[in-house]
């Protein structure tokens, strides 16, 4: 489980959305039990055109348009997973999963435990997430910490086309419910994606850039912003290590702790609301561990502002961490100025 499973075949430039579709295509083509469920994922191709034309290839029985019934739809997916199918359930926006909290949190996450291990719920849910599209408060949230708080769920957040495919295929192999938060701003981003089947391990962070002066632990799109910030910091002589958490439950303690033991400084960057967010967990993880002894400055968190995502583009940009803010925080931390 520690490395991307062996990759054979060629590498293509695919967008994040295409890469997810590629994964679903492979899954539908190789396993009769796999069905896609979601609102407008058929001929419409999905709200973000992720399922695209898969319905034409596999038919409406395999690529199922659901009514606008998030709770019922999620519950049907739970029941189907419980009894032999491998559903991939798409929420149109991760915000709408709040309508299905009951089925996700009370049922999918807990059934195995409540029944003493007698069942598994091999369910994959895809949740388009995050701000930056001007869709305002009810279509822009980052709710990964909510679900990451629930034992029984696994929560992944790919930040590259390659990981988007690998994590989805890994989620399908996983016997337990996996929620994949896909950042909406990444759907069009291109990157190298191996053709054919491979998996990216759930629970393993990626060190995107090695460095010695501070550790930036980030999730989803923030990992990319952190990488960009690290380039500027390098010009200033600050050598930042960037960790893309990739999954927040299970969270890869060891990679983070090893990095902090090396750098002595930790900056957490995440788009979700700062309070009680992913960065709180990462910070506490370090504070509770032996890596604490290596800290040579306070732990710093950059998270979303304590407000809903606003509509106005300037405000929208201001309420989530951006590259200049990451640079400032990293610089101050590395220079011992905070």
């Amino acid at each position: 489980m520690n490395a991307e499973s062996s990759v054979r075949g060629e590498v293509h430039e695919l967008s994040y959305a295409e890469s997810i579709r590629d994964a679903m295509d492979i899954a539908l083509g190789s396993d009769e039990r796999v069905v896609l469920m979601g609102e407008d994922i058929g001929v419409y191709g999905g709200a973000f055109q992720v399922t695209g034309s898969l319905v034409h290839k596999y038919g409406e029985d395999r690529v199922m348009d659901t009514p606008i019934s998030e709770l019922g739809g999620a519950g049907v997916a739970v029941g189907a997973a419980l009894t032999g199918l491998r559903p991939i359930f798409e929420f149109q926006f991760s915000d709408f999963s709040t309508l299905a909290m009951e089925q996700i949190v009370n049922q999918a996450a807990k059934l195995r435990y409540m029944l003493g291990g007698a069942v598994s719920v091999p369910l994959v849910m895809r949740l388009p997430s995050g701000s930056g599209t001007g869709a305002a408060a009810q279509h822009s949230q980052s709710l990964e910490a909510w679900y990451g708080h629930v034992p029984g769920l696994k929560v992944a957040q790919p930040s590259t086309p390659r990981d988007a495919k690998g994590l989805l295929l890994a989620a399908l192999e996983d016997p337990d419910p996996v929620l994949i938060f896909e950042h909406k701003l990444l759907y069009k981003m291109k990157g190298p994606v191996p053709s054919g089947y491979y998996t990216t391990p759930i629970g393993k962070a990626a060190v995107r850039r090695e460095g010695t002066d501070l550790t930036i632990a980030a999730n989803s799109i923030m990992a990319l912003k952190a990488e960009e910030a690290a380039k500027t910091l390098a010009d200033e002589g600050i050598d930042a290590e960037v960790i893309d958490l990739r999954t927040v439950r299970p969270i890869d303690r060891e990679t983070v702790l090893a990095s902090v033991r090396k750098t002595g400084r930790l900056l957490c960057v995440y788009e979700g609301v700062k309070t009680l967010g992913v960065g709180a967990e990462v910070s506490a993880m370090v504070a509770e561990s032996d890596a604490f002894d290596f800290l040579d400055g306070p732990i710093v968190r950059l998270g979303g502002a304590e407000c809903p995502i606003p509509y106005n583009p300037k405000l929208e940009e201001a309420v989530v961490p951006q590259v200049p803010a990451i640079i400032r925080a990293a610089r101050d931390l590395a220079n011992g100025a905070i």
């Binding site: 029985d61 709770l71 019922g72 029941g79 009951e102 089925q103 059934l111 069942v119």
Partner: peptide
């Protein structure tokens, strides 16, 4: 083992699950 997918502590919790179970039966 006897086909009981479980009692449920949530009122209405089993309804969509039953539909999912029926979906499996139909698809498979």
């Amino acid at each position: 083992a006897k086909g009981n997918l479980g009692a449920n502590g949530i009122v209405g919790g089993g309804l969509p699950i039953a539909v999912g179970s029926a979906l499996s039966a139909k698809r498979l």
